[in-house]
Design a protein around this nucleic acid. Structure first.
Lengths: 156, 156
DNA sequence: TTTGACGGTTCTATTTTAGAACTATAGAAT
DNA sequence: ATTCTATAGTTCTAAAATAGAACCGTCAAA
């Protein structure tokens, strides 16, 4: 999770990605949609390309122009987006209501995203889930790296 | 979404919240688990309390000590957490595998979170969803505030 | 020949964050 | 009685990130 947050956990990246999902593809498009500074936008796009979340592809020669489109890795961020949007819809909307609705093409209805268990299909909530170490577990739960913080304990 | 990101969209807040879901409740617990500076931790906890995501409750008098627990609003962030963790599990793990597994108490199995349509129950993906303006839609899609290059307010 | 669109880069000023030390309360140990 | 430890912060300075604005280069159209 820390690694993932290193990629998407800043003030702009998720907003840029949202624009991608809303079909924005070009520098000016992102800039005017978000009001992000051009400097930061260029930085973030570069980073997202490096991370393999966006691909930068030319749409014209002379002058060279590129557009940014989501890779599969980027498309896979969709549940994160939807989860964030949904939480905002529940907890952050003003009296006017939701700014955006989502319609599921398959069934034709406006929907909310629901997170379910892949094994039994039941909706999930925090207390129904038990977390336990996996194969890549860190040796010193919950965080060994934290101890490089100069080991505030006497560390016998 | 911008408003939600204003709350959880920084380098530490989501990590703090993850610790909350992992049952960490106290200042030192967060600090040693994450290695966050004490200054920022205090800031973030205050902010989360102000936002109604955590509640600060005393667990002893003299010296006064408090612990931080998730409100319902905070618990509702669970799908966001799970979506992030799951994306990381797919795209960011090293050869060792997932650091954490999640077991669903109801069915007893280790699971992945799946996001489905609330109306038909089918799994969702970006291209199956059509986005359209809702009652709280902004007048100048996609972002009016961005056009007036002044307007520092976060769409207050 | 100038203007405008596009996609950046460069600069300075402000804000955030990191890192470390310091404060305060109180029980336990010496 | 004094020191140690645990807990939960606060304060300070330096480093990094971000905001805001201007500038640059290519090309097409006016």
């Amino acid at each position: 999770m820390a690694r993932t947050i290193g990629v998407i956990g800043d003030r702009w990246t998720l907003l840029i990605l949202r624009e991608c999902f809303l079909r924005t593809r070009r520098f000016e498009g992102f800039q005017s949609a978000l009001g992000i500074t051009r400097h930061l936008l260029a930085e973030r796009l570069k980073k997202l390309v490096r991370q393999g979340i966006l691909r930068r592809i030319p749409y014209q020669e002379s002058p060279k122009r590129h557009e940014y489109i989501l890779t599969q890795k980027g498309l896979d961020l969709y549940p994160i987006m939807m989860a964030i949007v949904h939480w905002g819809d529940i907890h952050m909307v003003d009296e006017r209501g939701r700014p955006l609705l989502h319609q599921h093409r398959k069934c034709g209805k406006d929907f909310d995203p629901v997170m379910v268990c892949s094994e039994c299909g039941e909706p999930l909530s925090a207390k129904e889930v038990h977390t336990h170490p996996g194969p890549g577990a860190r040796s010193t739960p919950p965080n060994p790296a934290a101890s490089k913080t100069k080991a505030r304990s006497r560390a016998a």
